Amino acid sequence: MSDEEPPSGSQMNATEHWQAWLERYGDDYATAEERRAAYRDFHANLAELRSVFSQAERMHTAGYLQAHERVASGDADSPADAELWAPTHL
């Protein structure tokens, strides 16, 4: 199984996901109960993991939008200049 995520837009059903998880991580656990417990933990923590690992992308987007707002307000001549911009009161 590949280390890459499935192509965007493809969705695995629960059985396919379980099988893919077993192929990748199943050998890390000695018993079926340990595998099931680890898979439950994986699902319980998945939303938090996605949130943590997508912070950089969200911060980049916020910085991009702020740079364009500085250009629109006249505080900077271009987005590149806006990245270097600092408030005058500092």
Score class of each variant (00 low, 15 high):
Asp3Phe: 10
Glu5Phe: 10
Glu5Trp: 11
Ser8Phe: 14
Ser8Thr: 11
Ser8Glu: 15
Gly9Phe: 03
Gly9Ser: 02
Ser10Glu: 12
Gln11Pro: 02
Gln11Cys: 08
Met12Leu: 15
Met12Asn: 09
Met12Lys: 11
Met12Cys: 07
Met12Gln: 12
Asn13Glu: 07
Ala14Met: 09
Thr15Phe: 10
Thr15Met: 14
Glu16Cys: 05
Glu16Val: 05
Glu16Ala: 13
Glu16Lys: 06
His17Asn: 11
His17Asp: 12
Trp18Arg: 15
Gln19Leu: 10
Gln19Tyr: 03
Ala20Thr: 02
Trp21Phe: 02
Trp21Glu: 04
Trp21Asp: 04
Leu22Ser: 08
Leu22Val: 07
Leu22Asn: 11
Leu22Arg: 08
Glu23Met: 13
Arg24Leu: 07
Arg24Asn: 03
Tyr25Gln: 03
Tyr25Lys: 05
Gly26Val: 02
Gly26Leu: 01
Asp27Met: 09
Asp28Lys: 14
Asp28Ala: 12
Asp28Glu: 13
Asp28Ser: 14
Tyr29Ser: 00
Ala32Ser: 06
Glu33Gly: 00
Glu33Ala: 10
Glu33Leu: 06
Arg35Asn: 06
Arg36His: 05
Arg36Gly: 04
Ala37Gln: 10
Ala38Tyr: 00
Asp41Thr: 12
Asp41Leu: 07
Asp41Tyr: 04
Asp41Lys: 12
Phe42Lys: 01
Phe42Pro: 00
Phe42Trp: 08
His43Tyr: 04
His43Ala: 03
His43Glu: 13
Ala44Gly: 07
Asn45Ala: 11
Leu46Pro: 01
Ala47Asp: 04
Ala47Ser: 06
Glu48Arg: 13
Glu48Cys: 04
Arg50Met: 14
Ser51Tyr: 09
Val52Cys: 05
Phe53Tyr: 13
Phe53Trp: 09
Ser54Tyr: 08
Ser54Met: 12
Gln55Ile: 13
Gln55Lys: 13
Gln55Thr: 10
Ala56Asp: 15
Ala56Phe: 09
Arg58Leu: 08
Arg58Ser: 09
Arg58Trp: 06
Met59Ile: 12
Met59Lys: 15
His60Gly: 10
Thr61Gln: 15
Ala62Glu: 14
Ala62Phe: 10
Gly63Ala: 15
Tyr64His: 15
Tyr64Asp: 15
Gln66Val: 11
His68Lys: 14
His68Pro: 01
His68Glu: 10
Glu69Met: 08
Glu69Trp: 06
Val71Ile: 03
Ala72Met: 03
Ser73Cys: 06
Ser73Glu: 09
Ser73Ile: 01
Gly74Leu: 02
Gly74Tyr: 00
Asp75Leu: 15
Ala76Pro: 01
Ala76Ser: 04
Ala76Cys: 01
Ala76Asn: 00
Asp77Met: 09
Asp77Ile: 05
Asp77Asn: 12
Pro79Gln: 05
Pro79Trp: 00
Pro79Ser: 05
Ala80Asn: 07
Ala82His: 03
Ala82Leu: 01
Glu83Ala: 14
Glu83His: 14
Leu84Trp: 11
Leu84Thr: 09
Leu84Pro: 05
Trp85Asn: 04
Trp85Glu: 02
Trp85Thr: 02
Ala86Leu: 14
Pro87Asp: 07
Pro87Phe: 04
Thr88Gly: 07
Thr88Ser: 14
His89Gln: 14
His89Glu: 12
His89Ile: 08
Leu90Lys: 11
Leu90Ser: 08
